[in-house]
Simulated assay, not measured.
Amino acid sequence: MADEKNTLIPEEEEAEVITLEFDDGSKVDCEILGVFDYDDKDYIALIPDDGSDDVYLYRYQEYDDASFELIDITDDALFNKVAHEFDEIMASQEAEEE
């Protein structure tokens, strides 16, 4: 997945889905929109399959055995910077499609 950095999934490709489980035990299936780089670290954008317009952003760590870990972004300032980078990528991709 890291090879696809800063390129979100084109609509014609079938999206990968992962299930997130939260601390309260609730689960939600999420479509993987893409992995992108910010400040030399990988982040992942997920779209929950819950009917909302939300996008979840997490730090993404992929390991040599192809496993991966999603890490909460707990610093508000960092989260805002990562969200801004995601918005810039989305805007750039939308401009290319026009």
Rank of each mutant, 00 (worst) to 15 (best):
L78Y: 03
K41S: 13
I32L: 04
D3S: 09
D87M: 14
D87P: 01
S26W: 13
D49Q: 14
N80S: 10
A83L: 03
L78I: 08
D64S: 07
M90K: 09
V28I: 08
E88R: 12
G25Y: 10
S67R: 06
E11R: 10
E4H: 08
D42H: 12
D76V: 10
V28M: 13
N80C: 04
A66R: 15
D24L: 03
F22Q: 09
V17A: 07
A77Q: 13
D29I: 06
A45N: 01
E62Y: 02
D24G: 12
M1Q: 10
N6D: 12
I32Q: 00
D40W: 05
A45G: 01
E94F: 01
I9S: 05
D87W: 07
A95H: 10
E12W: 10
P48E: 05
E14K: 10
Y58K: 06
D54C: 05
E69H: 10
D37V: 13
D76Y: 12
K41C: 11
D87T: 10
F86N: 03
A91V: 01
E21W: 03
D75E: 15
E21K: 15
F36V: 00
G34Y: 01
G25E: 04
I44E: 00
R59H: 11
V55K: 11
D53S: 05
D72H: 04
E16W: 11
D87N: 13
G34Q: 01
A45S: 08
V28F: 08
F36C: 00
G51H: 08
T7K: 14
D65W: 06
S26G: 10
I89D: 00
Y56P: 02
E11F: 10
E97H: 06
I32G: 00
I18H: 02
M90G: 04
D49G: 09
D76A: 14
L57Q: 00
I9M: 09
D3Q: 12
E21S: 09
D40G: 01
E11Y: 11
D50Q: 08
D42E: 13
Y63C: 04
E62V: 07
L33A: 00
D40Y: 05
S67K: 09
L70A: 02
E98G: 06
L20C: 09
D24K: 09
I18N: 05
I73A: 06
P10T: 05
T74C: 06
D37C: 07
D76S: 13
V17M: 04
E69C: 06
T7D: 13
Y60Q: 03
Y58W: 12
